[in-house]
């Protein structure tokens, strides 16, 4: 086979790298344990990755809209949505729908608030969403002060159940990512998002409704974070204030490791899965090796930097 063509084909699928990295880490872990616990490891990796992927999709759309766009309110949003969802459901199966509607409502409101700060008050997204997250966290503290409420039985079963060892959640999120992939590449919204990320002025002159797309993007990101929050509460048997913490770095890391350009305008959905699996498996590999918490954090950081450095070497055919 012609080598340049083969290379080009690989370059046009930047998500391959993240899957390759995840596979290598998976093999290394199993090599260490001698193949023991392969099913359990894979199954829990799928569960936890599903949560990373949900918020990763939202963050990916935000980052796609161009330099400076980022949603840092995800962790606080997760905490607030989890608390509100559990309270509305009140451990009763009949109230699940109400709880979900409430959580979606929160997502829409948070997204509108983020966009409002960015657009009306002209605050840079990084600061707007960070300050919004303080407000959300305070609300979560005030609202979730009461005793820990357990999720309704049905909701708990859905969040933790498995089919042939595959978590229901992972299946649902896999379907969701297929839809998100179509949204990005085959709808007007997705194309417009990619166009804005490459050149906002050119996009406007080409007839793209720039501000509507940005609004929709921040709302999408917040809604996905809210959904992630309530599912996480179902999965871990109730809401807690700190449950969103690790999702700040994770949501950005899965996007970037997955092959999306931090500069915007170039994104892909499958890479989110590869990156999420990679992140989870990396931590469990280091656990298996018996690394201390400090070493684990250092190695995680170093490996993420290495992957990003390796992935970000895209060049165009003719850069003139």
């Amino acid at each position: 086979m012609n080598l340049p063509i083969a290379l080009n084909r690989i370059r046009s699928k930047p998500w391959l790298w993240s899957f390759l990295a995840a596979l290598l880490v998976w093999l290394a872990t199993l090599g260490f344990t001698g193949g023991e616990g392969a099913a359990a490891l894979t199954s829990s990796a799928l569960s936890f990755s599903a949560f990373f992927v949900i918020v990763g999709v939202g963050q990916m759309f935000v980052i796609t809209t161009g330099p400076g766009n980022i949603d840092l309110s995800i962790p606080a949003n997760i905490a607030l949505s989890a608390a509100v969802g559990m309270k509305l459901m009140d451990s009763q199966n009949s109230l699940i729908a109400l709880g979900l509607a409430g959580v979606l409502g929160i997502g829409v409101l948070v997204g509108c608030a983020n966009y409002g700060l960015i657009r009306l008050l002209r605050i840079p997204p990084i600061i707007a969403t960070l300050s919004a997250s303080f407000l959300l966290q305070s609300m979560a503290i005030a609202y979730g002060r009461s005793v820990r409420i357990a999720p309704p039985e049905l909701f708990y079963q859905f969040s933790t159940g498995r089919w042939l060892g595959i978590p229901y959640l992972a299946l649902a999120v896999a379907l969701f990512t297929v839809l998100a992939g179509y949204l990005l590449t085959r709808t007007r919204y997705g194309r417009w998002t990619l166009a804005i990320g490459q050149n906002m002025r050119a996009a406007e002159l080409a007839g793209v409704r720039v501000e509507r797309v940005r609004w929709a993007t921040y709302v999408l990101s917040a809604v996905f974070a809210s959904v992630c929050g309530v599912l996480l509460a179902g999965f871990s048997g109730g809401a807690s204030l700190s449950m969103g913490e690790e999702y700040l770095l994770a949501s950005i890391a899965v996007v970037v490791i997955g092959g999306t350009s931090v500069a915007g305008g170039f994104s892909n959905v499958p890479g989110l899965w590869g990156a999420a699996l990679f992140l989870y498996l990396l931590v469990s590999m280091l656990n298996t090796f018996g690394a201390s918490a400090g070493v684990r954090l250092i190695l995680t950081g170093v490996i993420i930097i290495a992957v990003i450095a390796a992935v970000s070497g895209r060049k165009t055919l003719r850069s003139l």
Partner: peptide, 28 residues
Amino acid sequence: TDGVFSLWSIAENISISSLAALRHGLLI
């Protein structure tokens, strides 16, 4: 500064202003 989407193909650069007409159902 005003025209080209530099990461895209020629075809995508042309179709960006006509996406509504290129839809078949919900998808382009």
